[in-house]
Simulated assay, not measured.
Amino acid sequence: MRRLGALLFMAIAGSGAGAAGQPQALSMTLEGLRSTRGQILVCVTRSAAYFPDCAKDPDKRHFAVPVKSGPIPLGTVAPGDYAIAIVHDENGNGKLDTFMGIPREGVGFSRNPVLRFGAPSFGSASFPVAGAPVEQAIRLKYFL
């Protein structure tokens, strides 16, 4: 009976998260949206050299998703450190609009680093993926 209890415990404990070396689900939620117009431009990268604009990253995940509340799935990713940069493309033109270098549309980053002049560093926005699904709650910032 004791052995059955130990086996049952091991089965329950091992059923939740995936193995540390396996790809894991990545998702995000959005906080502070000022409207539901347009789309969200998403950049997911694991390279500091291509953050925050991962357009030239050969391993990037760069795509647009509809504006919505609740979790937004970003697919599965291999274990490692990642950073997410997003733009609330309110007018749907596929790019971040600026006025004198200041974003006219909302921007946000994983781990919600303090935004001063320019984008945060990869290190301040990066988070680990290993052994379990990850969900990042990203707060949007509007400057104009």
Rank of each mutant, 00 (worst) to 15 (best):
Y50M: 02
I102Y: 09
L4M: 07
G16Y: 15
L74A: 04
G123C: 05
I40D: 00
G118D: 15
A17F: 13
G94R: 02
A6Y: 12
G16P: 04
P66Q: 12
A49F: 07
V42I: 07
R116M: 14
G38E: 02
D89V: 03
G131I: 02
M1C: 13
Y142V: 05
A130E: 15
G94L: 02
Y142Q: 00
S69R: 10
R46A: 01
P113V: 09
A125S: 06
G38M: 01
D59G: 09
F9E: 09
G118M: 12
N112I: 05
H88D: 07
P66L: 09
G18Y: 03
L33D: 04
L140A: 07
A137R: 15
S27E: 03
A48T: 11
V134P: 00
F109T: 03
A132L: 06
I40H: 03
E90S: 06
T76G: 07
L96W: 05
G106K: 00
F51H: 01
G80V: 10
Q39E: 08
G106I: 02
T98V: 10
I40A: 01
A17N: 12
P52F: 03
S121P: 02
A130L: 09
A78P: 02
R116I: 15
P73F: 03
T98D: 15
P66M: 10
A83T: 00
A132H: 08
F109M: 01
G131W: 04
F9C: 08
A132D: 08
I86V: 10
A125L: 04
Q22H: 13
K95R: 15
G123D: 11
H88Q: 06
A48Q: 07
E90Y: 03
R2P: 00
I40T: 06
G101I: 06
L115R: 05
Y142E: 01
E31G: 11
S69H: 15
G101M: 09
G70Q: 02
S110A: 07
T98R: 10
A64S: 14
